[in-house]
Simulated assay, not measured.
Amino acid sequence: MPGRSATRPAGVPAESGRGDGFRLALTTFTTVPVRPGRIDRATAGTAMALAPLVGVLLGAVLGAVLLGLAALAPPLVAAGLTVGVAALVTRGLHLDGLADTVDALGSYRRGSAALEIMKKPDVGPFGVVALVVVLLLQTATLAELAGRSWPATLAAVVAGTAAGRLGVTLACRRGVPAARPDGMGALVAGTVGPVAPVVGTLAVALAATPAVPGRPWQGPLAVLAALVVATGLLRHLVRRLGGITGDVLGAMVEVVTTLVYLGFVLSG
């Protein structure tokens, strides 16, 4: 829980800690009904480091859904339904975080004043526009990707979904503070060491290689470009809010995923 030491409790083996971390990652990023097990900052760090792996698994499911629907319906319809499935299996939490974060940025307020806007249950005009633009872009890009060969389509969805979760790994690295003393941000902020983001970036970039047929270098380039933009956005959010929150992590997921899909389409 927030405020606990990141040191593993005595008597708890490393294997148990990794298992708890993976279960926490599943319950954080999907609706898979598993018991989260022990929850503390050490477990949270493992969960955030494993976020891209959960993205790979989720992306494989969404890629299969897109390909299956595209065989039965027009690509745009298949893409729209796939975006709906993605929101369903993540409880829409990342989209909610995106809307709240953009509302805070649009208010031009800083610190606690901006955080208060993020806590409000309603969605403001900036948040609504952000949701519409992101959902339209995801639907349009997935419709385009659905028209490619099935290995390229599957690779694109897997890499894009994993990259979105890699954005969370980057946001939780050491040195990035929490905006509040409690909540999701306080639990996960600064819990990821320097190795996990590097390994995750290399793995996701490699997974993106087949996403652009005939141009294997452009898939990894799209992933790296999206992560660079996300890093700049994260720095701006930390300056404005004082650190990260759960909403910021949700925004990172949606922004990076959308940018990677867009990069794959523009590279094709």
Rank of each mutant, 00 (worst) to 15 (best):
M1D: 13
M1K: 07
M1T: 13
M1C: 05
G3T: 15
R4V: 09
S5R: 12
G11S: 10
G11V: 14
P13K: 12
P13C: 11
A14M: 04
G17Q: 14
R18W: 15
G19K: 04
G19T: 11
D20H: 15
A25C: 08
A25N: 08
L26G: 08
T30S: 09
P33N: 02
P36S: 11
P36Y: 13
G37Y: 09
G37S: 10
I39S: 08
R41D: 10
T43P: 00
T43R: 12
A44H: 13
A49L: 12
A51T: 08
A51E: 03
L53R: 02
L53I: 14
V54S: 04
G55L: 03
L57Q: 07
L58K: 03
G59Y: 04
A60W: 01
V61K: 04
L62Y: 14
L62W: 14
G63P: 03
G63K: 01
A64I: 01
L66I: 07
L67F: 01
L69Y: 05
A71C: 00
L72D: 06
P74G: 00
L76M: 09
L76Y: 06
A78C: 03
L81P: 01
T82P: 05
V83K: 05
G84H: 09
G84A: 13
G84M: 10
A87M: 15
L88F: 13
R91Y: 06
R91H: 14
G92L: 09
D96S: 10
G97L: 03
A99S: 13
T101D: 07
V102W: 05
V102I: 15
A104G: 12
R109C: 02
G111F: 13
A113M: 11
L115M: 08
I117Q: 10
I117D: 07
I117K: 09
K119S: 15
K119H: 14
P121M: 12
P121E: 13
D122V: 04
V123K: 04
V123H: 04
V128D: 01
V129T: 15
V129E: 03
A130K: 12
V133D: 05
T139W: 13
A140V: 14
T141Q: 11
T141L: 03
L145D: 07
L145E: 12
L145G: 02
A146K: 06
G147K: 06
P151I: 03
L154H: 09
A155K: 02
V157E: 09
A159I: 02
T161G: 09
G164F: 02
A171S: 15
G175C: 08
A186M: 02
A186L: 05
V188M: 00
G190W: 04
V195D: 00
A196T: 06
L202S: 00
A205S: 15
A205Q: 08
L206V: 15
A208D: 10
P210G: 05
A211S: 15
V212Y: 09
P213A: 07
P213F: 08
G214N: 10
R215Y: 04
R215T: 11
R215S: 15
P220N: 07
P220M: 08
V228C: 01
V229L: 15
G232W: 08
G232S: 06
G232H: 08
V238A: 07
R240C: 09
R240E: 13
G243L: 13
I244G: 06
T245K: 04
G246M: 12
D247R: 07
D247S: 09
V248K: 04
G250I: 11
G250H: 07
E254T: 06
E254G: 04
E254C: 08
V255G: 02
V260Y: 01
G263V: 12
V265A: 12
S267T: 14
S267R: 10
